[in-house]
Every structure is written in structure tokens, then in C-alpha cells.
């Protein structure tokens, strides 16, 4: 599969998921446990993405570098209720600054 193929497949699944919610009878997804698990999925996936994006080094090794400092600054910004774009730019600037100083 090339990259375009992957994009189209992922986009079709995303749209089908949304449409399914509008078309299928509500009672099929009405189990409270089912709904809780579906609702919790973004939490598990996003946490996994934070972890892997932060610690994955070359060829799957775990490393601590400027990205961990960036996440720390991002959390600080979130605690100060900064908007999304400020959090992202602060994270990027932290890593860029540390690398400019020769670390990470």
C-alpha cells in the first residue's frame, strides 16, 4: 500500500464510523460498559502516543532527550491554561533551544 492508499483507507473508515453512529439504532451501542470503553479509548491511545513520541529513539530504542523537556514545558503551559497553539509552540521552542545549546 502506498501513502495515498493508506490515507484513503483511513479516511473512509473515519467517515464510516461517523455515519454508522448516525444510521444504526441507538440500542445496539447502548451498553453502558461498551460506551465507557469507547469513550476511554482516546485517553489510552493519546497517552500511548505521548509516550512513544517522547521516548522512541533510533530503531526502537528508548531514549531521554530534548523531547522529554518539551513535554515538561507543555504540561506547565497546560497547567497555566495556555491555548493549544501556545502549548505546541512552547514545546517545539524548548526542544529547538536545547538542541541549539548542544543537548538532546
Amino acid at each position: 500500500m502506498n501513502l495515498w492508499g493508506a490515507i484513503i483507507v483511513a479516511a473512509v473508515i473515519a467517515f464510516a464510523t461517523k455515519l454508522a453512529g448516525h444510521l444504526i439504532p441507538a440500542h445496539l451501542l447502548s451498553g453502558r460498559s461498551t460506551r465507557r470503553v469507547m469513550g476511554a479509548m482516546p485517553v489510552a491511545l493519546l497517552a500511548a502516543l505521548v509516550a512513544t513520541q517522547t521516548f522512541t529513539g533510533p530503531s526502537g530504542t528508548l531514549v531521554v532527550d530534548a523531547r522529554l523537556a518539551a513535554v515538561g514545558v507543555a504540561v506547565l503551559a497546560l497547567l497555566l491554561r495556555a491555548p493549544f497553539i501556545v502549548v505546541v509552540v512552547a514545546g517545539a521552542a524548548t526542544a529547538a533551544g536545547l538542541r541549539w545549546l548542544g543537548w538532546g
Binding site: 523531547r67 518539551a70 504540561v75 514545546g91
Partner: peptide, 8 residues
């Protein structure tokens, strides 16, 4: 690192 910040 911006990607890490975006996910958090």
C-alpha cells in the same frame, strides 16, 4: 517535540 506537545 511539537508532536509530543500536541498529543499531551
Amino acid at each position: 517535540a511539537a508532536a509530543c506537545a500536541a498529543f499531551i
